[in-house]
Design a protein around this nucleic acid. Sequence first.
DNA 1: TTCTTCCTCATACTTTAGGATGATTTTAAT
DNA 2: ATTAAAATCATCCTAAAGTATGAGGAAGAA
Lengths: 154, 154
Amino acid sequence: MKFIARNRSIILYGVSLAILLLTMKWLEWRIVVIDHAFELYAGVVAILFTLLGIWLANKLTRPKTNTVVIEKQVLVRTKDFVLNEVELARLSLSKRELEVLQSMADGLSNQQIAERLFLSLNTIKTHSSKVFEKLEVQRRTQAVEKARQLNIIP
Amino acid sequence: MKFIARNRSIILYGVSLAILLLTMKWLEWRIVVIDHAFELYAGVVAILFTLLGIWLANKLTRPKTNTVVIEKQVLVRTKDFVLNEVELARLSLSKRELEVLQSMADGLSNQQIAERLFLSLNTIKTHSSKVFEKLEVQRRTQAVEKARQLNIIP
DNA sequence: TTCTTCCTCATACTTTAGGATGATTTTAAT
DNA sequence: ATTAAAATCATCCTAAAGTATGAGGAAGAA
């Protein structure tokens, strides 16, 4: 019985008061009620004003609030691609070299890149070699992987 | 004075009671105190039990737990990768082929993949050829690009 | 068991990529 | 005008990648 557990003290108080009054009644029952109207009245007043106090407290005191703060982690994924201009500047890739790098990332062969940029195959080879040099890699796949990690290509 | 603001009603109640008693006193001061001991006693009892009621209420009301959820933003730089199992199943890539594809995405050469997977170079070539076939591409860079677009590798 | 798929490896060959080097031209800055 | 960096292209050579084909073994399903 949750009600009993919660209001144990109140109930005990009430019961005690009742017992007290009953005891008084039992002890002095033979004496005229009027003689003891005072005690009865006092008991009633006590009970009423106790209830009034409880009502007052509940009505007027601000509710006790135990603020429990729960931190909920919200994953916010970064925008799809933010160019890392710092790294791009640090690598000092020329415009052409970057174009070649982007084309490599698209999966194009050197020949296809040459056609796309209207250049000779040999020029593409030269550019790609420079790119590998600056990115400190050996193969185009590594170059693309590293460029992606550094956020210099989408 | 915050205290006054908070307990305004209680104070008013007390003051009213005091005024009432004082009025009674003033009106009937000339009558013997004993004749009116009853009213005084009742007033004292009322005040005491009102205070008792307030104390009881404050002691026994359980604090309301106010749960406040604070959303803490956590930046995740890696785009959340959700494996496209549908595409993966559609392509019917075998376990080995997928491993080779992932290694290619890491920028490894066939020789390095062979060493990583404890296989021969020729085996890697066979697997990669099958991968290109299933992905309908010609080069490893294209394979990685397409696999990324299909969300079958991070 | 038989059949299929996957995995493994090999050989032979072609294509592409990459390295090294040098030359010419353009562009931009001093 | 001079200088430096960037861009273009070439040749020669090696390494790596990719294609085609075959073949044997292992694992799982019918």
